[in-house]
Amino acid sequence: MSPSAVRAITEAAHATEPIPLAEVNARSALLARFDRSYLVPAPVFLRMAGRLTDPRRPGGPFRALTIDGRRTFRYHSVYYDTPRLRSFHDHRQGRRLRFKIRERLYQDTGERQFEIKLKGSRGDTVKHRRPLTGTTTPLDTPCRTFLTETLHHAYGIDAPTALHPSLSTDYLRATFVADGERITCDAGLTCNDLHTHRTAHCDTTLVLVETKTTGHLTEADRLLHTYGIRPAVFTKYCSSFTWLRPGLPGNRWRRAAHRAFGTGGGRDVRSPSSGAGIVRHGALRT
């Protein structure tokens, strides 16, 4: 039987109307947005999703992103950082000029994207990206140039010269969309430290819900608050490293990381032959 979080997002995605990717990008692209993360028990998630996707909802129900008949999508991402984990520590210290670099692969569509996530002047998240084709990787000249230009234009800083694959993540995602709002719902999260070869598995009863909007609290935020669920200090990159490398000073993420990974399989040691830095091709655009 499938884990309850996977069942929950699959059930919710198939219980509402579909929305195609082109319409998502037209109505709710949100490349600059405010994000809030929640670790939501599967039964609570289903209650929230039922309210948001109710056909009687004023303004119409949230609809599920659908591509070629699919309503849940497999994601594989590889994050890049310096040998001393500059990106992790910049986020830990709350530096204003901070960024994350990753390759995102949409396993069900075959699409790859090189993405740079920046912190905007209002505290929002601003995403820059370019497609990856053929055998191009984030370490190749076109992506290096794109990174240099993006950081110089946004922050007036130089790009790091030494980058390597640091962490990979895999999960299943369903995305729900209304005008100006988007909710991503992830289940089955697995994170791999590409240096130590340790693996963390998220609790299979939890759905990682992220609300994304250009403004203030969304309807989903308010619903979760009424159910007693508060935002979690959780990011896939920083929380995973906090759990997988206990010696790192990641206290701000430790509580949420323990909740997410503490009962999800611990810190498994993988064989070095598993191939740190190997990238699997495939994945979406949220």
Results as ranks from 00 to 15, higher is better:
H14M: 10
G69D: 06
Y75L: 02
D186S: 05
R122K: 06
R74N: 10
R51N: 11
T242I: 04
P3W: 15
A276S: 14
S121L: 15
T72Q: 07
T10A: 12
L139F: 10
R63Y: 03
D35F: 09
A15L: 12
A220G: 04
V233N: 06
G134K: 09
K127E: 00
L52M: 09
L284Y: 03
D193F: 05
R230T: 10
L118Y: 14
F45V: 00
G275D: 10
S37I: 00
P249R: 09
S273Q: 06
G110S: 00
R27G: 02
P20R: 14
S121G: 04
N251E: 07
T135M: 11
T184Q: 06
K212A: 00
E11R: 08
D221K: 14
S168Q: 11
H76W: 03
I183M: 10
R57A: 15
H197T: 00
M48D: 13
A15H: 11
P41K: 12
G262H: 11
K119D: 03
R230F: 10
T235N: 10
V279S: 07
T133Y: 04
P131E: 01
G215F: 14
E115F: 01
L208Q: 01
L132Q: 03
G123V: 01
I101G: 02
A64R: 11
R98Y: 08
R47A: 03
S28Y: 04
A12T: 09
